[in-house]
Design a protein around this nucleic acid. Structure first.
Lengths: 248, 248
DNA sequence: TACCCAGATTGATTTATATCACGCTTGTAG
DNA sequence: CTACAAGCGTGATATAAATCAATCTGGGTA
């Protein structure tokens, strides 16, 4: 139903930003049409990952940032005692790995939530290119800055808001991000499991379930497994007053 | 009458990174000795702020990032309904405003927690300079990436850890950051009020008080107002197993 | 087809921390 | 010196969400 964006995977290793339907969301966004070749020169076409596959692992040598082409990705950090914290969900056009730019190793693990394809930007080449292209450098600063901000938003959510408010906020965030991709903002598939939502929002799975059914009973949403329809986004926004714009 | 107050402000607007004692912590860290002039050329000496003064205000036009020279700063975001979320504390050598690089306006308000002086890096000039100096660009990426990471750490703390664990983590973070400044890591003054700590960590002030006294009774710390002494950092680390390094 | 099992839901109970209410200290202004 | 407010500490109570404990569901597969 929502096949709005179909990514054509070229067999060659080199990806074509020129023809990519995500070029208005992804890094090419910041690059002038006639300079796009330079970005294409450094980007590598990644393979296709199945649900559950790791795109990279925490503590593995850091090589490149990834742009999601299709599918969905979750990132999480694992502590020595083995507990996991989901740190983000990434949709097509979004850049994964910005938190790892400050070390030799990946700061988190990235996992495909569904069948996913990516483009890789090797970090040395990317840095060289951003040095040479001020607009691209500016864009990188913007992306990272936004990620810092959405971290602050999340902290706010976690420390000040109830379970219902947190979940409303997440649903609205996903909604607006799907919309940016020209997909329905009111009816979509949640790419992640309830337990990922719970982990990300600092809740127990049971609480997530309960809130979903409560929202459903109030006629605000309709869910069936991972399918979800936002029936009354105004009420959702009412549950969660703050939270307007927010897309990584 | 002519014994006018002589403030330690150099009359010139230009600051000297060459002679600054923080040059091994701050931006100069990434710049070669013989290139330092170029950084000095763009940095502006800011004024001195008293406790409570705003260094900049949320939604004001974004002009520059600030490096703390002396004192301490807290940043916070205010939502439409007026509730505040403290998003960070900044000590000398640390850079404030990285979350604002992605817009025309400051994403948060920065307030002096005590008498504070700063250096200002006008953003256009900083971006120009980082384009010209790959090492400085690299350093900016590192700083921002670290800030993203510490956001993740905070999210983890807020969603998985108890009041005691959160406070232990904050104390250890401050301790290690003071130590980097060649100050005691075991005996220092908390620059912020209990209410700031509470807000930052998603707790009620009362809870912060209680945990402080509990720690004191267990002989882990000694507090008297804002003075604090960490008597048993091992126990503190035991309270909060994860959380080793973390300095913005 | 029937079975299995991970994920999801629902209900009952517990618990950490917020909230409410109050007293104590300290620093500053009159 | 006194007064006052802001910050801090402490006790009693309320509550949202965690935890514990079943049960249900549906997609994959033997």
């Amino acid at each position: 139903m929502d096949r709005a964006i179909s990514v054509k995977l070229s067999p060659s290793l080199k990806a074509s930003c020129h023809t990519c339907s995500l070029s208005n969301l992804c890094l090419p966004l910041a690059v002038d049409e006639n300079q796009l070749d330079r970005l294409e020169d450094i980007v590598e076409q990644g393979r296709i990952y199945d649900r559950g596959d790791h795109l990279f692992d925490q503590d593995a040598p850091f090589r490149s940032c990834l742009a999601v082409r299709s599918g969905a990705v979750k990132t999480s950090i694992i502590t020595e005692n083995g507990s996991e914290q989901v740190t983000g969900f990434f949709l097509p056009g979004e850049l994964v790995g910005l938190d790892s730019l400050s070390g030799e190793r990946y700061a988190c693990t990235a996992k495909a939530l569904e069948r996913t394809s990516v483009c890789r930007f090797p970090i040395e080449k990317l840095e060289e290119l951003t040095s040479a292209m001020p607009e691209l450098q500016h864009h990188m600063y913007q992306l990272m800055s936004k990620e810092i901000r959405s971290g602050h938003q999340l902290a706010m959510l976690l420390s000040k808001n109830s379970a219902e408010e947190r979940i409303a906020a997440l649903l609205l965030s996903l909604s607006s991000r799907f919309q940016r991709r020209r997909m329905s903002g009111t009816k979509f598939n949640l790419p992640m499991a309830r337990s990922d939502i719970a982990n990300f929002l600092g809740l127990a799975v049971e609480t997530v379930s309960r809130v979903f059914t409560r929202f459903q009973n109030q006629g605000i949403i309709r869910t069936q497994g991972r399918e979800i329809e936002l029936l009354d986004t105004e009420s959702l926004r009412g549950v969660m007053p703050e939270f307007n714009r927010q897309a990584p």
